[in-house]
Design a binder for these strands. Sequence first.
DNA 1: GGATTATCATTTGCATGCGAATGAATTGAC
DNA 2: GTCAATTCATTCGCATGCAAATGATAATCC
Lengths: 143, 143
Amino acid sequence: MSPDDPGHDGYRLQDQVGFILRKAHQRHVAIFAAHIADLTPPQFAALAKLRDVGETSQNQLGALIAMDAATVKGVIDRLAARGLVRLSKHEIDKRRLQVRLTEEGRRSVEELVPLAQKITEETLAPLSPKDAATLVALLAKIS
Amino acid sequence: MSPDDPGHDGYRLQDQVGFILRKAHQRHVAIFAAHIADLTPPQFAALAKLRDVGETSQNQLGALIAMDAATVKGVIDRLAARGLVRLSKHEIDKRRLQVRLTEEGRRSVEELVPLAQKITEETLAPLSPKDAATLVALLAKIS
DNA sequence: GGATTATCATTTGCATGCGAATGAATTGAC
DNA sequence: GTCAATTCATTCGCATGCAAATGATAATCC
């Protein structure tokens, strides 16, 4: 009855990539929350990417941070409600909703980036630097 | 403006474990849905684990598949509503809610395990078998 | 045994995530 | 130029996920 028991047809849930991927993600989110309490990883991703690209449309931002239209809307709305992001209509293409950081938003990102680096470190802490690099490289290939 | 641009302070969102982890998980869930349309990964995890352990309490099952009490309740309720799982009160400890597979639930799992194996394969398809094993091992260490 | 503590389950509230449907605006084909 | 196809955004419904609060039962301490 040990977890090593092959049992049945040799399928062990706890060995499947999907299951481990979910657990690893969970742990990362917990570490994130411990360091940055007032922002979620997707919210921070939006701010960090906006810092990179300046102004974009909501959909475009979603593409950059891997969020579909429905999801990105919620994230951006919450950031806007907190004054970290400002929304405006695109002057030429009236379908687009432009998004950019407010001054406060920019200050927040700058302040949070060092914490985000710590979060990455702590998430990878169980691994040697070499293994950490390997993991990131392999993960990138399957994402 | 390329994604390789170090920019700012050298923090690049798309290189952080957390971000890549989230994307890899997303891709896996999409592959899962393509193969198993009528069940989610957490629902399948519950069924697969119940196949392993037979009968357990709801909380205990949650611990086995890395779900907190609030989450596992929703998952189990939906499985019960579909007749894949049966709930009963523990005879001695009246706090506990016992969960076990129904016959239909057992048939479903047996039928789905081969598909689940295909899902694992497809998720790891971009990697050589050796790299796949490495990834799974490293992921396990950080989860 | 009686009070304190711990465990199990439930509920509420909030935040992703996605599919599908809708409407508005733009682009393409012709 | 007009009609069809596309794109952008929004909305709805459903399913995780977690924190925090609550109630019921069990275990422990004394």
